[in-house]
Design a binder for these strands. Structure first.
Length: 502
RNA sequence: CGGGGCGUGGCGCAGCCUGGUAGCGCACCUGCUUUGGGAGCAGGGAGUCGGAGGUUCAAAUCCUCUCGCCCCGACCA
């Protein structure tokens, strides 16, 4: 028995943030890079991103969107065309001022002073400005509308403090940008895409989310309204998992995005933008994983099952390996991602731990006893049912014949079990609260607090200052209910969700 | 930018207080025995101690400066 402390990750209960870091590093999702604040997304992490892209991109296409690509660099002056927007992003923009290196006096290289750009370029923190500059060129008539574009890209925001996946200086994301003839239509688009995000989060990532509107102080710089989906992590903190903005005509006016309507009159377009980022990978990790390591919902997993062969001697090994290879072939042919761990250098127990660390949804054990019975043992990463008397882990016997169907059924069970578990966790950590003192005390434990709010930023600011909690959203499906503002006692007609957030 | 911590074989650390020329665990390589929950034994390879300067006969260790990274906080997806 090896020393556990060295191999085990930091328990969640001991240090949540260290636990998260351990998972990301040990499951090889990402690693720190030589560039401060920038991470390397390793193959295991990138595979999650690819699956996310595949699923979301399909949903975008199904709602009529098409992909395009706009430049990484944006003329500095573009950013200042929309007053709120520049204020929101100015502090975190990387600026390109030169286009050439030259020899530096100390023997290294430095920007060649003769190569200074006439107008500095910024590295996009988001692409509203450059995309809408193009829209003003492309859109002339109501017949050109709606424009429904999306781009998959990297963006840079020079944040002071970074955290793997959750906040890095450079990150990958998707940004949708649409233009419409009427506000009614653009608002419908905002809600439609928020719905796409919510569906993706819940059905693919198995992460339940609240849909709602951001308060004034939390909304996107330059938007009329920001809607969002909010998820709860296992430490009770909220994480914004996606946003969809109603930009109104703010950018259309700044970038002259106009069209002639049926009557020949010039109108400004109504625009939306919406995005999700690699941050969702962080959400995935924090929503499902445990002290054994990463937990990946089957629909997000590139590898659905790992086969671990077990044998005692050479003869047994040959028999088992033959059956294992046949099993792998059968599962692969059915479209499942399968790895056969045929390493002879580590023990089965070691493999169990290693694959659990990496979050593979199901382990298939196959040994001499199983081969004899024409079966294998399936162990889901997280139990899909209550454990029986004396059962330490859920183990199901799967027939080798018909293994694909049986495995798919188990994967479906696991997918819904993960969602149910996450939803139950959120419900267990959601509270209706009316007393500010109780709130100040209870917020320390984390969770979502449904409380009344009068609607003033002053109250929001005060609560934030005193408790570090913010309004995560004003939920769409919150019922009307008269009450008193948590902070000032003023009139309120519905509850909003307060929480500490990432 | 404030507070804290850390830089020593690939990884995690000890050694530093009280200077004497580098050690442990994991990983790696070889061999034998093992294999249904992180295997055992034996042997082996691998480090100009983040960098610069200083003190000293002698610096991982003491002094000064510097660079980098991580964590916590303010800002944010």
């Amino acid at each position: 028995m090896a020393k556990r402390d060295e191999k085990a990750i930091t328990p969640q209960s001991e240090d949540y943030s260290q636990w998260y870091q351990d998972i990301v590093l040990r499951a090889e999702l990402a690693d720190y890079s030589p560039v401060k604040g920038c991470m390397v997304i390793r193959p295991n992490g990138y595979a999650l991103w690819e699956n996310l892209q595949k699923a979301l991109d399909g949903m975008f296409k199904a709602t009529g969107h098409v992909n395009a690509y706009f430049p990484l660099f944006i003329p500095m002056s573009f950013l200042s065309k929309e007053a709120e927007h520049v204020e929101g992003f100015a502090k975190e923009c990387a600026v390109v001022t030169h286009h050439r290196l030259g020899a530096s006096p100390d023997g290294g290289v430095c920007p060649d002073p003769d190569s200074e750009l006439e107008e500095p370029l910024i590295v996009r923190p988001t692409s509203e400005t450059i995309i809408y500059a193009m829209y003003s060129k492309w859109i002339k008539s109501y017949r050109d509308l709606p424009v429904l574009l999306n781009q998959w890209a990297n963006v840079v925001r020079w944040e002071m403090r970074t955290r793997l996946f959750l906040r890095t200086t450079e990150f990958l994301w998707q940004e949708g940008h649409t233009a419409h003839a009427t506000h009614e239509e653009s608002w419908a688009e905002v809600l439609r895409m928020l719905d796409v995000y919510a569906r993706f989060a819940e059905e693919w990532m198995a992460v339940p989310v609240l849909k709602g509107v951001k308060s004034e102080s939390e909304k996107f710089a330059g938007a009329l309204k920001t809607t969002c989906i909010e998820a709860m992590m296992q430490d009770g903190k909220a994480l914004q998992a996606g946003t969809s903005h109603d930009l109104g005509q703010n950018f259309a006016k700044a970038f002259d995005v106009k069209f002639q309507d049926e009557k020949g009159e010039w109108q400004y377009c109504w625009q939306t933008s919406w995005g999700v980022s690699t941050r969702l990978i962080g959400a995935l990790v924090m929503a499902h994983s445990d002290d054994q390591g990463l937990v990946v919902p089957p629909k997000m997993a590139a590898t659905h099952a790992v086969i671990v062969p077990i044998y005692k001697d050479e003869a047994g090994r040959a028999r088992v390996m033959e059956a294992a290879a046949a099993l792998k072939a059968r599962l692969s042919a059915a479209g499942l991602g399968v790895v056969l761990d045929d390493r002879d250098t580590v023990s089965p127990g070691f493999k169990y731990n290693e694959w659990e660390m990496k979050g593979v949804p199901v382990r298939l054990e196959i040994g001499p006893r199983d081969v004899e019975q024409g079966a294998c043992v399936a162990v889901p990463r997280v139990a899909t049912r209550a454990l029986r008397e004396g059962e330490r882990r859920q183990k199901e016997s799967l027939p080798l014949e018909g293994a694909p169907e049986a495995l798919k059924a188990l994967l479906d069970d696991l997918q819904s079990a993960l969602f149910r578990r996450a939803l139950a966790f959120r419900e267990d950590h959601s509270y209706r609260i009316d007393d500010y003192e109780a709130f100040q005390r209870d917020i320390e434990k984390g969770g979502f607090f449904w409380a009344h709010w009068c609607g003033s930023s002053a109250c929001e600011d005060r609560v934030k200052e005193e408790t570090k909690a913010t309004i995560r959203c004003i939920p769409f499906d919150g019922e009307k209910e008269p009450g008193k503002c948590l902070a000032c006692g003023g009139e309120s007609d519905r509850r909003v969700v307060w929480a500490r957030a990432y």
